[in-house]
Design a protein around this nucleic acid. Structure first.
Length: 454
RNA sequence: GGAGAGGUGGCAGAGUGGUCGAAUGUACCUGACUCGAAAUCAGGCGUAGGUGCAAGCCUACCGUGGGUUCGAAUCCCACCCUCUCCGCCA
């Protein structure tokens, strides 16, 4: 509804500019060629059925076409050189000219067929999700997720618990104005709630930078399509994005970021890093824009699921051998925020069927929402291994002097809007006021309680 | 928005149709000399793909995309980006 995908259809691989070969895929093409059935089997665990026959036939054709094309190119090159040499000596070239002319048509046709096939092959490959890491629980959907640990225990309320919509209404949380300006799933905040929203983001950013060693970043919120290709939003998930165009005509379509994972991770696209530059630990507070296509009717009440929300994001770029340690650390980095805010939560290992497109292993953090009597996602931390790095062409020069793909990880640390929701619900009092968590008070001029204004 | 300059290997910088994947300098690596280092000398040093057991051979890449040509870093067109000046603007 928001972002109908005509883009990918009209223009199969615009984000592939600069990459001519099949070498820039999501999965290692060599792996696919050599262990096709095994790969298909692992992908099946995440509900993706790989069309093995289609791939095989495209590969066979590619191989044959490429060999033939390069053969003809080689022939043309050597004949052309002969022409130059003969001309230099003032000799007759008409014989060679005739010979090379004979190659022309076939070469051109062959090149065109190969180019078309490469586009088709790339498009096919770019829609294949990452392979799940060994040890990820196998499961069809979220019911297959596995709880890893819990922290804190839900508070006992001596009164009827209200949800954040009701609690927030008197504190400046205004869905009507949001809807008036922009439609459903937009929120307008004023006063105490707006202030707390900012305080939450500040606290998170300060913790990630000062306590956990991340470098603070400020990034563009509008990015080019190839950037989204790099992190895996395109080509498959265009309908989840907001597209923007500049005033005036003829401008390239760009996209609003749906998470600053996109802009942070792509910082290293198309580059070869030095080994001693790694790991990179980046963080940013940014708005996120999501069309939420396909989620009609889900979480319609309140600000759980919004078209625009803020998030403090963590990204790490690591050497391959370090990425799984980094993943565990990032989960701890995210947990630290919930602990500081004294919000009960649990850590869940996502099963194969519930993981995101680019992830090899994901942990979700779920915060307790008393009004829903449920744990709800507030952070998601993923190791994408080399999946995004391949798409971005992000490499580093290893100690052995070889260029290898880096590993990329991302995680929310945390989602600001949902944290606000959790605070309003968990810290509410019978009189409609909300206690300000101690950790936020320095960011709110020392205020201890938010009281309904009218 | 207007006018101009420019985008070539890690960096600097040649190259305006024919052995140019690209001179030269510099950085880096290896070796020689040295007790060691510096200096000097010799050699090496881009990325990706195809093919082959391998040595190797082949193909593509000089901002991006297209065109002209037997042949393009070099000529033509479009676009992107950078810099300088003017205008506008938070």
């Amino acid at each position: 509804m928001f972002c109908v995908v005509i883009f990918a259809l009209l223009n199969p691989t615009p984000y592939c500019r600069g990459f001519r070969s099949t070498g820039f895929l999501m999965l290692d093409i060599q792996l696919l060629r050599s262990q096709l059935d095994a790969v298909a089997q692992r992908l099946a665990a995440r509900n993706f059925s790989l069309d093995v026959t289609a791939f095989q036939s495209m590969e066979d054709e590619r191989k044959q076409l490429q060999t033939r094309t390069q053969d003809l190119q080689s022939k043309r090159n050597s004949l052309s050189k002969q022409i130059g040499a003969l001309r230099g000596k003032g000799e007759d070239v008409s014989g060679v000219m005739a010979e090379v002319a004979g190659i022309g048509d076939e070469l051109k046709a062959s090149e065109e067929r190969l180019a078309a096939l490469q586009i088709k092959l790339n498009d096919f490959l770019s829609r294949i999700p990452n392979l799940p890491c060994d040890g990820v629980p196998v499961g069809k959907d979220e019911t297959g997720n596995v709880e890893v640990r819990r922290w804190g225990s839900p508070r006992e309320f001596g009164f009827e618990v209200r949800d954040h919509v009701d609690v927030g209404a008197a504190l400046g949380l205004d869905f009507d104005t949001g809807a008036k300006l922009s439609g459903a799933r937009f929120t307008f905040m004023r006063g105490a709630v707006a202030s707390m929203h900012r305080a939450i983001a500040q606290l998170m950013l300060d913790m990630q930078t000062r306590e956990h060693g991340y470098t603070e970043c400020y990034t563009p919120y509008i990015v080019n399509p190839e950037v989204l290709y790099g992190t895996g939003q395109l080509p498959k998930f265009a309908e989840d994005m907001f597209r923007v165009e500049r005033g005036g005509e003829g401008s390239q379509t760009q996209y609003l970021i749906s998470t600053s994972e996109i802009s942070l991770t792509n910082m290293v696209r198309e580059s070869i890093l030095k080994a001693d530059e790694l790991p990179l630990k980046l963080t940013a507070h940014s708005p996120c824009f999501r069309s939420e296509a396909g989620s009609y009717g889900r979480d319609t009440r309140g600000m759980i699921r919004q078209h625009q929300f803020d998030k403090v994001e963590m990204v790490r770029i690591t050497k391959p051998e370090d990425s799984y340690d980094a993943l565990e650390e990032m989960v701890v980095n995210a947990e630290a925020v919930l602990q500081r805010l004294e919000l009960p939560y649990r850590v869940v290992a996502l099963c194969t069927g519930d993981m995101g497109f680019g992830s090899a292993k994901t942990y979700d953090l779920e915060v307790w929402l008393p009004a829903q009597k449920a744990y709800r996602e507030i952070s998601s931390v993923s190791n994408c291994e080399s999946f995004q790095a391949r798409r971005m062409q992000a490499r580093y020069k290893s100690e052995a002097g070889k260029n290898e793909f880096v590993h990329t990880l991302n995680g929310s640390g945390l989602a600001v809007g949902r944290t606000l929701v959790a605070i309003l619900e968990n810290y509410q009092q019978a009189d409609g006021s909300v206690i300000v968590p101690a950790a936020l008070r320095p960011y709110m001029g020392g205020i201890e309680v938010l009281r309904p204004s009218a």
